[in-house]
């Protein structure tokens, strides 16, 4: 089932169709959470999780990412079809580019390769003040540094006072603080905004 649309149709019928439509599919929802707790990772003496990696992509070899961490250590990260890739939004592995920053979580294989379950590209989480606004732009002060936050119509969402996310950004206020989950544009002081958390005006 290589065609993504065919696969989507198949999975749609699996979840919305009646029981037994898809062979082998099992309904979820009946198990207690404790019954399926994931195994816990073993940390080293510094609390470093071997199943986690951060750094910048220095080379891409097929589905293998070569990554240099901020402590200059080197990681090889293997992506598979089962790896979720986030870059401003859920996307596909071909969006990973040399120079991207990343956080990855997966399973460390005996050969040192991290088989990634989840990959977050260029993701940043910023506590900032909204200094001013321009056309689809928020000018942010993050720890005294100026950042440009780009609103991406159709993607950027706002969460006001912890209520469900909406696309309406009109309640954001100049001078107020905000938390921004976004995708950094490598080697710039600009981010594309995925979600902005703010206190409603």
């Amino acid at each position: 089932m290589n065609n993504p649309l065919d696969r989507r149709r198949f999975l749609t019928s699996a979840v919305l169709g009646s029981a037994g439509v898809v062979a082998g599919a099992t309904a979820l929802g009946s198990l207690a959470p404790e019954a399926v707790a994931a195994p816990m990772p073993k940390l080293d003496k510094n609390g470093i999780d071997p199943n986690f990696a951060e750094g910048r992509i220095t080379a891409i070899n097929g589905s293998m990412l070569m990554v240099t961490a901020s402590d200059r250590s080197f990681h090889r990260i293997q992506l598979t079809k089962a790896t979720s890739v986030w870059k401003l939004r859920p996307t596909t592995m071909d969006q990973a580019k040399v120079g991207d920053g990343l956080y990855a979580r997966g399973v460390r294989m005996p050969d040192g390769v991290l088989a990634a379950d989840a990959l977050w590209l260029n993701i940043v989480n910023l506590e900032a003040h909204i200094v001013s606004m321009g056309t689809n732009v928020l000018h942010l002060d993050h720890n005294g540094n100026r950042l440009v936050g780009h609103v991406v119509p159709g993607t950027t969402a706002a969460v006001y006072n912890g209520t469900p996310a909406v696309r309406d950004l009109s309640m954001l206020q100049v001078g107020k603080h905000a938390q921004v989950i976004g995708a950094w544009r490598p080697d710039t002081n600009e981010v594309d905004i995925a979600t902005v958390y703010a206190a409603a005006a």
Partner: peptide, 17 residues
Amino acid sequence: EYRSAVGLIRSDVLEWW
């Protein structure tokens, strides 16, 4: 439903439509 499956889930969102 999500909580019952959270121990099986290994990734962030793969796809949505």
